[in-house]
Computed example of a mutant assay.
Amino acid sequence: MTINEQRFSEKIENELFLCKNCIKDNKLKTFFEESILNKKTCSFCNKKNQKCLDIYEQLSFYNLISAVIRYHYSEDTYNSHWGGDSIFQIFTRENHILNTINMHQNKYFEYAIEALTIRIEDNHGVWIFLGNYEDGTRGCYFDSIKDSRSTRISKLENILLKENYFLHEEEIKSILTSYNDSIVSTLDVNSTFYRARIGYEKKAIIKKNFPKGKKYRYIPYKGKKISAPDSYLVNGGRLNRTGVSFLYLATNKETAINEVRPDPGHIVSIGKFKSLKPLKIIDFDKIFVNLSQNEESLKSFRFLNHIDQLFSHPITQNERHLYIITQFFADIFRKIGFDAIKFTSSVGNGQNLLVFNPNNFTYMKSKENRTYKIDNIRYSIHPLKN
């Protein structure tokens, strides 16, 4: 170990700071947004004057990051007893939780990862290893929380394809209201989101001889033309029934564009919107943070996670009948008093926001209201078990 490596190692024995730029997972980002951050040198990327969280002895942080590991990965991925790697190895390469690319700028970042890993493995609020059963056999969390499913909702999915949805509303209302404050979040007034629409208002010539032809600028849809459509124009969607106009938004431009599924060559308009008053919302990332502080409460997240996965699961054209299920849950949340639903996007790194009353948001003037051309689309693949 060099002198500089020894100094860095000794330093993080007494302090450990993590900055927002080193966070990739949206649940951890939610936790950071509600935490006290101070300008420090990040132990992971070594950048100075970054907004950092002191995670040295933050029990709530270690409970959450342990739960986030369980959310994204099954134990056999990170437990060598089951043929996996280690948490240290997962964190030092590209992963779902930390922005390792950002950290590689710090040649000592592995020492910070090691310190983080030791604290995670020593944490007993939320377990990352199932351990042994009473009979001595070794247990394993073979399913990630993300891929886990609620038996009750799985049965309900099949029932709703055969029976009228309103026959089962009271049962689900009762379950959701039992979670009380764990599922309630507030979206502040003037919170900003984005909306995309394929196409543009008009095309204007800006240069006639560029260099041997014309150069155009594309003027984006604005105001009502990029807001929620009139109800008579609305077909049934992921969360809205036919003839019901909700406002679909996203937390960033990239996610908004991905959600409208453009093809290469399409021109897409982006509009920025802001909330006009505080709204009572369902935020699945915030729910996860609330329920991740001990093993017992984390188990109860399985039911809510299944709903989030239904909302975000990509549905092909020949599977649109499955909208019956997602529309059902959206109706329930609306009927028990929520103004909007914030849920995971399956096609972007941000989140989606479904607003029941479009009048709670307004289109705002912004330099970000512009058009984008889609150059290409990239697909990510992984092999399935035969």
Rank of each mutant, 00 (worst) to 15 (best):
Y179Q: 12
S269P: 05
D285E: 15
G243M: 10
S297Q: 13
S178G: 07
F61L: 02
K162N: 15
K202V: 08
L53I: 13
K173W: 03
N164D: 06
Q6M: 13
I287V: 04
L276V: 07
C19P: 05
F273W: 01
K20H: 13
D285W: 06
G83S: 04
E57N: 15
I206L: 14
K215Q: 15
A115T: 02
T186R: 00
N14W: 11
L59G: 08
S227G: 10
D308F: 00
G243I: 12
I69V: 02
I267M: 06
E296S: 06
T344F: 07
H81Q: 14
Y379P: 04
P264K: 09
N99T: 04
M364T: 14
F166L: 07
L233M: 13
N132V: 13
K222A: 10
R119F: 07
S185F: 00
R119M: 07
G131I: 03
L384F: 05
K39V: 11
N240D: 04
G84C: 10
I377S: 03
A196E: 06
T92D: 06
R238A: 08
R149T: 10
G131P: 12
F88R: 14
K215G: 12
G350R: 10
E254F: 07
F303M: 06
I332E: 11
C52W: 09
E163A: 03
F129D: 02
D375C: 09
Y133I: 01
K208R: 08
F273E: 01
L239N: 15
K146T: 01
N349P: 07
S144K: 00
T362V: 10
H104K: 15
Y141M: 01
Y323V: 03
P264N: 09
Q50R: 14
V355Q: 01
L354P: 06
D283S: 06
N180Q: 13
S150D: 01
N79I: 03
E15I: 05
D181R: 08
Y232C: 05
T177V: 00
D263S: 13
T137V: 10
S148P: 05
I381L: 10
G348I: 02
T177M: 03
Q351R: 12
D122K: 01
F61H: 04
N180L: 10
D181G: 11
I159A: 05
A67S: 07
K272C: 02
L53S: 15
Q50Y: 10
K24T: 08
T242K: 15
S144L: 00
E33F: 08
S312N: 01
T255E: 10
S366H: 03
N46E: 01
Q327P: 14
K299A: 08
K146H: 01
A256M: 05
F343T: 11
G237W: 11
A115K: 13
E171Q: 14
D283N: 15
G136R: 14
R378G: 13
D25V: 07
T2L: 03
F193E: 00
A67P: 02
N49T: 06
R70Q: 10
S60P: 00
C42E: 07
T92L: 04
K215S: 15
F246A: 00
R217G: 13
I113W: 08
I118A: 04
F284E: 04
K173E: 02
I145F: 10
D25Q: 09
Y133R: 05
R378W: 11
I381K: 09
I36D: 12
S144C: 02
